[in-house]
Amino acid sequence: MRFAMGSSIDQRATYLQLQKAANQKLQDLYAKDLHFELDKINEPILWVKNMPNLFAVICYLQTDEIFKINYLSDLTAYDNIDHIDGDKRFVLVYQLLSLETKVSVRLKLLIDDSEDAKTISHIFPAANWLEREVFDMYGIVFRGHPDLRRIMMDERFIGHPQRKEYDIKQRMPFADNMKTNLDRNPVP
């Protein structure tokens, strides 16, 4: 969609209308069998059921004329340990955006500790490092990821520090960050 040299306020109004239309379409399409809600700034949140469902939704949103999703803003997760949002342990959050129509869609997926997620890095290459971060912090394994290593914590680190059961002050002493014995030897 191309805009004439209008004011930015006009553009913003157009984007809001597009977002509204997108919300309506999303509701018509998926509200029957998936949980659909709007957040406080009228962005749609769609709770997909499982991994194949997520892929189907993403593929549809990429090809659809209204959505034209082509950008992954963020991929993250949170620990649903108190089961407020569902029965499973973690919630994966996919924040999608269209650079053309500025429509944004948030997909959420409940996932358990024992099950594995699948990578979307072949669809959005930006997901590569984001999935590594989610794996590092929460321990969610993404099947099919090209290089699933820790990205933030030390490679020798054991555990996943953003899980609620991980004590925030639990540091891991390694040979190169433990306290040096200052008075052990005389000055050489």
Partner: peptide
């Protein structure tokens, strides 16, 4: 006088790692 800090030996490092 200044105190030197020497790197811990391998055994000391292993002793410090009690978490596993």
């Amino acid at each position: 006088e200044r105190t030197p800090a020497l790197k811990p030996t391998y055994e000391e490092a292993m002793k410090a790692m009690t978490y596993h």
